[in-house]
Design a protein around this nucleic acid. Sequence first.
DNA 1: GCGGTTCCGTGATATATGTCACACGGGCGA
DNA 2: TCGCCCGTGTGACATATATCACGGAACCGC
Lengths: 211, 211
Amino acid sequence: MINDSQVVNAAFRGSFEPALIEEINRIGIYQEVEEGEYLIRPGSYIRSVPIILSGSIKIMRPDAAGNEALLYYLSGLDSCAISMTGTPDNKPSEITAIAEEKTRLIFIPVEKVDEWICRFPTWKQFVFRTYQRRFDDMIATIDSIAFQKLDERLLTYLKKKTQSCQCTVLQITHEEIAREMATSREVISRLLKQLERVGYLRLSRNKIEIL
Amino acid sequence: MINDSQVVNAAFRGSFEPALIEEINRIGIYQEVEEGEYLIRPGSYIRSVPIILSGSIKIMRPDAAGNEALLYYLSGLDSCAISMTGTPDNKPSEITAIAEEKTRLIFIPVEKVDEWICRFPTWKQFVFRTYQRRFDDMIATIDSIAFQKLDERLLTYLKKKTQSCQCTVLQITHEEIAREMATSREVISRLLKQLERVGYLRLSRNKIEIL
DNA sequence: GCGGTTCCGTGATATATGTCACACGGGCGA
DNA sequence: TCGCCCGTGTGACATATATCACGGAACCGC
């Protein structure tokens, strides 16, 4: 049986200095969430920053009309830049975070994020790399929405999805894809069918197998 | 005649502690750019971070096919978060920064950005607020592209534009708007005409007057 | 004033995407 | 086993946006 601190140690060794790992073990709150569980809902206040140990989390942006747009995925050793910055003004969150699969993470209180920056060089590096990655992700998202047609977007969507879950069989409904891409189910069904005809994937109920 | 350090002092007094202002005066490189001038082009390397003293800068994202998408504007006391993070891996920039009008700014070498974070609390605060603002901007951009129809997008575009230049008369061509919104000139012309009929604005050559 | 250039207005048409309506089939609980 | 719900496939149609093809108006240099 693996306990929390072993998991943390294994995940961070090599990235963080020992004193920092110890601090994380002491302060961080370990948590496991199941697939589909919400970590953040719009309107809630973010008081701590999650670091993903294993699994993956998807970050979405809902709009007033009930649509959503996928911003990016978080997986191993990623963290959510929005939650680092989201708090200073004490504004509530404007995003949604949902576990894509069973996910283990550790929460660090925001004050500590700040405090550690000057105490641990590797932490500062981590925080900045996190920002940079999330910026790159957001730019990629904008690229995709602004420049690509739906069929291309669907392809990049499927690619990212398989990357983030590290498998070729997606357990997902057309409806859900449509929601994440802010379009309608029928359109996705048609495009998927098209991709199946071309031999890019195989469809069945609740399942898409990439070839 | 105003000299550089007076400008800098006036801009930063109240936001930064005196020691930091002095440091900025000593290290930062003051520069003025004219309207239309490029600060960053895709492919160039970013070795220093600009802080805008007055004027405004627009940050765009070009794609391979020659289209562009507007990411956000920078104006008084803003800074570009991408340039803070853009350097760690020594990757070239993937964005474009263009002066919207005559703009005064001061460049801080990236190493100093990093160093000052632990030395000056107000600087750390500044850096984090910058990140947060840019994140919010990017999310607003995604909202607009993902959820709004072109006519609404055009409205929000015009609003932001007037905000950033602080005036109601925009010196701009339909072609340029189209490029920034990644669509075509005819479409923008039609939509603008529509807005004129509704009495929202008045059109003339190279000029849009918001009412 | 003249010729060229840039910007703008607008019809006609093409294409992509969104919406509606409905049928089919599989799973699953009563 | 029956009925029902959910996910899917698909035609027909509505709408939004892109593209093409012009013509005309404003401006600029000569």
